[in-house]
Design a protein around this nucleic acid. Structure first.
Lengths: 227, 227
DNA sequence: GCCAAATTCGAACGGCCGTAAGACTTCCCC
DNA sequence: GGGGAAGTCTTACGGCCGTTCGAATTTGGC
């Protein structure tokens, strides 16, 4: 049997397949991509293994053969995309740190946090659906995913530490809360929420222009931190 | 048959039961309360009709007899709690409008929007579980609920209109986005999210003190609007 | 071209789900 | 206190679900 059963171990061999959007039409990859899309659009519980395999054009048993279970499939998509997103964020934070002699200003820290996911959100971006998946998985995921989100804050701590250095005058508690607020702003960017915004503004407001959305969020969050 | 089938019609007779937390141990009310709690804690899809009726100590058929279906039960809880919350918000906004001769400042508008739900969040508040339910229903609800959230923005428009008057210098589009951001901050306050915050701050940060959380959010959001 | 391993396939199992039917009980009004 | 409505109970139906099994097929090294 080829699929590894220990899905939790993140430090392992070179991750042979996927990684690109669709290198070859190997079954495992077809399942991965189809599942990510369906989970993102309809939620984990509302998508059956039969839905996934039908959309991918593969046999029903493929999910259990290649991933072990439906839960493990969800977790693997979640893990892979999270690593990918956090890598982009960490890279941007690192660059900002270099640019500012070890302690970048709040604006740059927030930009490192928000730019990658918002770029993914662009209508023609290859990872648009992945971001929607991640937002959904955060609140609708399995207990295992919720446990990881709860306990693994190592990635988040990079940013809270940077913010603590940028604003040593603020109480750490205050920093944590404001970071929490900022992430709330970000995670609220689901497809459904945009629709309401569109109705409210009678059609003049659209999420199409991600760059200006990013700027708006940065302005708002930076001002919040400056308070 | 006593239960009304037209759940969507909100303008109707005096709503004889429930409304208080538990007036008499009538079956319909027991189901309502048990379902709200279980939905809030575990999500709609993860709670079966059998779970609900078992927790309520009533017969399995009660849900379908009193509410028509599981979906209709969810919708009725959602509708009742939404009306209740929005009434409190509208009252506060109205009071603020009176106090400030027709156009309250941003701070007061945001307070009217955020104070009721955050008060509900207090550990000993009778509506604590209701707020968690509403937050969950917003993203995990049925298509019908999502449709209502999408199209019915009349309640939200009261607040966007007030904000437009308070900040006539800002483009309406900007107002809508910032309102969207503020709501994102609010809706991110789920049980699970607090846990992460707790881990990040190594136990020093807790959601126990809702009043200071409210103040923090108001400071942050007001500063965002002032940018 | 052969053989063993890897993969795909069709089919089915056991289980939980929402809902409905029908018998039974309680309540209330006349 | 009789009778009909309202509510409760038991039971089960049909359906979709995740998963598994064994056979069939494909793949890759020699």
């Amino acid at each position: 049997m080829s699929p590894k059963s220990d899905v939790a171990a993140a430090n392992q061999a070179p991750e042979p397949d996927i990684e690109g959007v669709d290198n070859e039409a190997v079954t495992k990859n077809l399942v991965f991509v189809a599942a990510e899309r369906l989970f993102a659009l309809h939620g984990f519980q509302n998508v059956s293994v039969r839905d996934i395999t039908a959309a991918a054009g593969v046999n029903l048993a493929s999910v259990n053969y290649h991933f072990g279970s439906k839960d493990a499939l969800l977790y693997e998509i979640f893990r892979r995309r999270t690593v990918e997103l956090n890598r982009e964020r960490a890279k941007k934070l690192h660059e900002a740190t270099d640019r500012h002699a070890g302690s970048p200003p709040v604006r740059e820290i927030l930009a490192a946090l928000l730019t990658p996911p918002l770029r993914w959100l662009a209508p023609d971006h290859e990872r648009r659906i992945s971001l929607q998946f991640l937002i959904r998985a955060r609140s609708e995921g399995t207990d295992e995913i919720r446990q990881v989100l709860k306990t693994d804050v190592t990635h988040l701590r990079r940013f809270s530490d940077a913010l603590l250095k940028a604003r040593p005058d603020l109480a750490p508690e205050e920093i944590y809360w404001r970071l929490h607020f900022t992430l709330g702003m970000l995670h609220n960017n689901r497809f459904a929420e945009f629709d309401r915004l569109n109705v409210l503004s009678e059609g003049t407001t659209s999420e199409a222009d991600v760059e200006s959305l990013l700027q708006r969020m940065l302005v708002f969050a930076e001002a919040g931190f400056a308070a």
